[in-house]
Design a protein around this nucleic acid. Sequence first.
DNA 1: AGGGAAGTCTTACGGGCGTTCGAATTTGGC
DNA 2: GCCAAATTCGAACGCCCGTAAGACTTCCCT
Lengths: 228, 228
Amino acid sequence: MSPTTDAAVSPLMADGGADAAETEAATKNLVFIAAERLFALHGFQNVSVRDITAAAGVNLASVNYHFGSKDALLFEIFRRRTAELNRERARMLHEANDRHQGKPPVREVLAALLTPPLRWLAPDHERRISLQFLIRARSEGTDDIRQVLKTDVSHLRRFSDALLSARPDLSPEEVYWRLHFTLGMLHNNRFAEFDRLNVLSEGTTSEADVVALLARMLAFAEAGFATR
Amino acid sequence: MSPTTDAAVSPLMADGGADAAETEAATKNLVFIAAERLFALHGFQNVSVRDITAAAGVNLASVNYHFGSKDALLFEIFRRRTAELNRERARMLHEANDRHQGKPPVREVLAALLTPPLRWLAPDHERRISLQFLIRARSEGTDDIRQVLKTDVSHLRRFSDALLSARPDLSPEEVYWRLHFTLGMLHNNRFAEFDRLNVLSEGTTSEADVVALLARMLAFAEAGFATR
DNA sequence: AGGGAAGTCTTACGGGCGTTCGAATTTGGC
DNA sequence: GCCAAATTCGAACGCCCGTAAGACTTCCCT
């Protein structure tokens, strides 16, 4: 009866699938996409199952049929997007390792951490809304999501390890704190924060230029890591 | 009938009032304190009026009688705590101006911005829960709250102006971005993020030592501002 | 062509929510 | 000590929510 067990959503990205996926008209994907968008824009609690199914143009019962519950839907979106983002980060870290005989400098480790999410932030990127979803889910998430965040920790550890060996002169706790600060900079990139920044700067800042933003953020974080 | 107009909550801190306030047994204050705590711990949407009044030991109707609505209660807590925090920041910035003939260096401006909230973060500080409330409200807030955040912008401008004149060699947008980064570091100090950091570092980091945390954060941000 | 599984639709149920109302009670000025 | 205003209280209303049940339709395999 209920296909809440996975293996559905079949043709959605074989692995590192690029774009053109998710265009299948299957109801499950329509729900997935609509829910991700609405959650990202308005928050989990402010979006009802009726909102989602109406936006997706499908029947009310679809969410419970295909995902089991509203919570499970949120969880699956979060799980899939997190895995996708972390895959890109891991690949960049791996490449940095290859380039520097397993001991990449701080800048390259930070680049591997920050570049994928900031790429997603580009106005024309297909994952722009996914990044907003992830940022929001991180702070508003349910209990289920904290379980995924523990997996996320084991992923993060690869970056903290790389930073530790790039700066063996620093105490480990100092490195952990600086990583924490860097992640704070990253997770602050919500639409609402950009709005406030735009008001403050009277429109001179534009988050649309994500290449410039990445360069600025990398320079800031690298300088923060370089002290003492 | 309804005393939702201010001027109640009378004896709560004359101005820079220290502690020992808020111990009055008035129902309105009991609701205020209980709501702030519950909102900070569980989020606005996850706390019901019944939760608040039960925790405060008062009648269910108290919230609507004293504040008008649940939304208005949230708004008043946010407004009061924001004003309180910004007052401390403004005072520190003013003192820094006095010490440096109106041109304080970057470090002192950042200290004025970061020190008050990080002081509130201390385990035994009476405003510890208020800071968690503010951080949470900033990202989960209702539409009313964004109006307050615009006032907050005009307050922030004093700091951005100080930074601009401390670093006239930088382009204004660069300064705005670095301020944005710094605020991201600050707003990332939620309990949940500390938990993740503790897991990652296997318990070697402790957010209890807020003096050390402030020193680390200031050093990181100052280094980020010092480049080029 | 048939039949069973998979998916979709309509409908409704039970529950928690914010809010309100009117009565009961307390408070404070004279 | 009295009366009016302020506050507290118990109870209920109406709404929207997530979810489930059951009938119906579509699709595919033989």
